[in-house]
Amino acid sequence: MKKLINNPELVVEEMLEGIVKAHPNYVKQLEGFNVLVRANAPVKGKVALISGGGSGHEPSHGGFVGKGMLDGAVAGAVFTSPTPDQIFEAIKAVNGGAGVLSIIKNYTGDVMNFEMAAEMAEMEGLEDLEIASVVVDDDVAVENSTWTTGRRGIAGTVFIHKIAGAAAEKGMSLREVKEVAEKVIANVRSMGMSLTPCTVPAAGKPSFTLGENEMEVGLGIHGEPGTHRDEIKTADEITTHLVDKILADIDYSNSEVAVMVNGLGGTPIMELYVINKKVNEILAEKGIKIYKTLVGNYMTSLEMAGASITLLKLDEQLKELLDAAADTPAFTQF
């Protein structure tokens, strides 16, 4: 295992310290907890947003804590949902009196731990603490079905952070912010693939092995295998496959979309742009208009080489919120 770390057991703690030292104007850490909140948290009178999940997805989620996006982020062990006590601390720390919305990616562990945190909040009977949550399940690789866990949440989550974050910043109520978040969730779809596995520091070896000509398609962001393995194709072919799967899922025709070409951590940025070129061609051909594009490492899987593509169908409200200013360590726009 080749990693720039000191101790696999302490890597999350050391990372969080490194983040706080790098961005003291943006974030502070709750003492004794693996929780980052805005430097000026709680923001009085504003609906607060928290997110979280396992670590290893950086800059998600700590990198998106700041004005116009999240109020807090809870960091679990690498690829492991954070525990309810940590989440509960985050909720308390960001609560500015207008309620707290948890943005949860649809993994059994994440859902249950956030659920238990909410139960803790209820049990403590905190006055002045209204809570709500949304569950993101943008990954079209997995068929949706009522008798399974359903779809995963992957890179599309960042659009929820951005847009619901802007809604909260605008002064919307908890119910309204939640509605906005749900609208984004209903309209966002993603799918990913990878050329290499990644190694959880504490595991010490890769999660799977791939032949020199193989890739994993339809995989999540936790180093797990995908829905299937295939021979490596060209960037254009891969992009076409991913975009086709997304377009088959909901009707994007005649609509405007936001695009995210997301790197999984070990992908040269050059390659993400090559993919973006093809995404543009495909969408242009289908008459789908691109309103805004993000290209970069937003939701990673440690050092995995691969990419995911996300499309978000926009309406006027979503466009306005997507365009709103944001100022966080990993995403800033005027």
Binding site: G76, T80, S81, T83, P84, D85, T108, G109, N113, E115
Partner: peptide, 11 residues
Amino acid sequence: ISKVGGASGPL
């Protein structure tokens, strides 16, 4: 609950 995380922790 406070140390395991993931799915198995809550369960």
